[in-house]
């Protein structure tokens, strides 16, 4: 396809807006290498001491491990609950499948601030605030709709005849699912895993309602840290988080790319 000429005015406007869009991420990188004790831009000296500071900061390190464990558990549960649900909605099509599917995506429509409050009000009397289980439940409410959506789409895009062919060859429904359906859904499964993991790992608002003083996720710890003092350590953590996100995206792209080579 040949390039369509783009007017210089549009190029300049788009360039400036891109600069604006990327500005916060662009300034964070140099600040993370600041040698100053406080945040200033540009920094007056350079060092990697703030990266070291993260690993010496027990609050941040604890929060990191909690976020990691939380994202892991939430992702596993989302797949474990979302996959059967997607299968039932797409392949078994019970009466009212459409309505059910809408109901299961509804939590995404609710602003997280409202959902967070709603969960706080029911979880508090149950003693779930400040507990790992409470956090898992809260995150699951928002990751599950994503999981069901992505997995449903992946499933709906599979040619049904391939599964039928397996049935004709004598495979029972469960065998068909594990030997044919699941392997063909590989790229959908990878995307779902990545999406649930990132959503849970980055989630702030729900976590702010659910965490107590002794149990903080990394975004909550960062939020509290930035709220009190915006020192360059937050920049160093931000850079690490961006790198982590990029790594996840890269893995997904590689896997999806690999998948494309053998799924037509």
């Amino acid at each position: 396809m040949d390039e369509r000429p783009v007017s210089p005015a549009l190029k300049i406007a788009a360039g400036l807006m891109f600069l604006f869009l990327l500005a916060p991420l662009l300034v964070v990188l140099p600040i993370s290498f600041s040698g100053d004790d406080f945040m200033a831009f540009p920094p007056s000296s350079w060092s990697v001491k703030w990266y070291g500071a993260i690993f010496a900061n027990s609050v941040m390190m604890n929060a990191f491990w909690i976020s990691l464990a939380l994202a892991f558990v939430v992702t596993v549960l989302s797949l474990g609950i979302g996959l059967p649900a997607a299968y039932a909605l797409v392949r078994l099509k019970p009466p009212g499948a459409e309505a059910l599917s809408n109901l299961f995506s509804a939590p995404l429509l609710l602003p997280t601030i409202v959902l967070g409050l709603a969960l706080l009000l029911v979880f508090a009397p149950m003693g779930l605030i400040g507990s790992f289980q409470g956090l898992v439940a809260a995150h699951l409410i928002v990751t599950l709709p994503y999981a069901v959506r992505v997995l449903s789409t992946a499933l709906a895009n599979l040619p049904l005849t391939v599964e039928e062919a397996a049935g004709m060859l004598g495979a029972r429904p469960l065998t068909v699912f594990f030997r044919v359906t699941l392997p063909m859904m590989r790229s959908g499964l990878v995307s779902t895993t990545a999406l649930c993991f990132l959503v849970s790992f980055d989630e702030v608002v729900l976590s702010l309602f659910m965490t107590g003083p002794r149990l903080q996720t990394l975004p909550v710890a960062m939020y509290n840290h930035v709220d009190q003092q915006a020192d360059p350590m937050a920049a160093a953590i931000s850079v690490l988080l961006v790198v982590l996100t990029l790594a996840v995206v890269l893995v997904v792209d590689r896997t999806a790319g690999l998948t494309r080579t053998f799924v037509k």
């Binding site: 040619p159 391939v162 039928e164 063909m184």
Partner: peptide
């Protein structure tokens, strides 16, 4: 008619 081979 559409072959329906197992792609994986």
């Amino acid at each position: 008619q559409s072959y329906a081979l197992f792609p994986h």
